[in-house]
Structure formats: C-alpha cells, structure tokens
C-alpha cells in the first residue's frame, strides 16, 4: 500500500505550538515562511550553502532549508522572531545594529541565529578547525577574529559586510548575554 504523503504535525516555534497539515516534501523553511507567516527566516540558496535560513533547533543552529518540517515535530525551534524579548533586543541583535553588521540585511537573521548558536558552542568548550590544540586539556580558545570567521563561515553575505559582522559577533561575545539588553526607544 502506498504510504500517505502528508501528515498533520505540530511544531514548537518560539515557545508556541502551531498545528498544520504538511506535504512531507515541505521544508521547515517553507513551513515557516509560506504557511506560518514567520518570514524573518530567509531563503537564499535553498541548498544548504549560504546560511540565510539558519534557525536554532533544540538550541543548536541548523539549516531550515535542509530540515523537513515533518522531521522537526517534537523539537524546540527558535527563529529570528523569537530572539528578542518583546521590544528588548538581544545583545547579539544590538551588536549588529550598533556596528552596522549588514548592508542589505537579507542574510542578517541567519547571521544572528548562527552567532547565537556559535556563542553557545564556544561557551560549551567546542573547538573549531582553527583551534591549534583540540585536546580537552588545552585552554579553550579565545574568540579571536580568526576563530569567529571560521565558526561563522557557514553564513555568506553577498554584500560583503564581513568586517562589521565579525566585529558585531566579537562585541556580542564580550557582553555577558542578558546584561546589556536595553529597551529600544
């Protein structure tokens, strides 16, 4: 018997539950943008190469264009819409704003979600490809410009705003998360 090619699923996005029927071919990216009006997450290449569609799944950064929506059921999804606390911007958002970490802004939601995931990975002591000594006995590498660029290399910016993006991530890394939040005027 041919299997059913669609399912009714419930997605947990930014702490809210959304129930919707999906054709199994639907990616999480298309479910967010086309079905749930959460258009902050951007579609760039749709091939897992540009990072514009980056969201957090169970707290880790992931590409929503390669994630089937049906396979995301039961997991905690955070999109750019869920990063700020109401009108209070997240320190990573503030850093991008203050340091002009963009030009056209299309890659920015993915850059910010990726930076959030990357800072959490670094805080958990994960090494990177440019970490000289990966052994756990070695000192965790400071977030140098080289480390930031390597760890953010999955996010492309066609405007080439990399200098300011790297600076914004560096500033966000310096500010203990939650302490520098300010209400946007």
């Amino acid at each position: 018997m041919a299997p059913s090619t669609s399912s009714a699923i419930t997605l947990n996005i930014n702490g809210e539950k959304y129930t919707l029927p999906v054709d199994h071919r639907t990616t999480l990216l298309d479910a967010l943008r086309e079905r749930l009006d959460l258009t902050g997450t951007k579609k760039g290449c749709d091939q897992g190469q540009c990072g514009a569609c980056t969201v957090l799944i169970d707290g880790r950064r992931a590409l929503s264009c390669l994630q089937l929506a049906v396979a995301a059921e039961g997991r905690a999804i955070t999109t750019i819409e869920g990063v700020a606390d109401g009108e209070r911007l997240h320190p990573v958002q503030r850093a991008f704003l203050e340091l002009d970490g963009y030009q056209c802004g299309y890659c920015t939601p993915g850059q910010i979600c990726s930076a959030l995931g990357m800072l959490a990975e670094h805080a958990d002591g994960w090494p990177s490809a440019v970490t000289a000594d990966v052994r756990p006995e070695a000192e965790p590498p400071p977030l140098s410009a080289e480390e930031i660029r390597e760890r953010m290399s999955g996010n492309l910016c066609r405007c080439g705003a990399y200098v300011q993006i790297a600076q914004a991530v560096a500033r966000a890394a310096e500010s203990p998360l939650g302490e520098t939040e300010e209400r946007v005027a």
Partner: peptide, 10 residues
C-alpha cells in the same frame, strides 16, 4: 571540524 559548517555539523 574541517568539514562543512557549524550548522551542517549540528
């Protein structure tokens, strides 16, 4: 760590 990107490795 030399392969893919942080998102893909996750």
């Amino acid at each position: 760590l030399a392969g893919a990107s942080g998102q893909l490795r996750n």
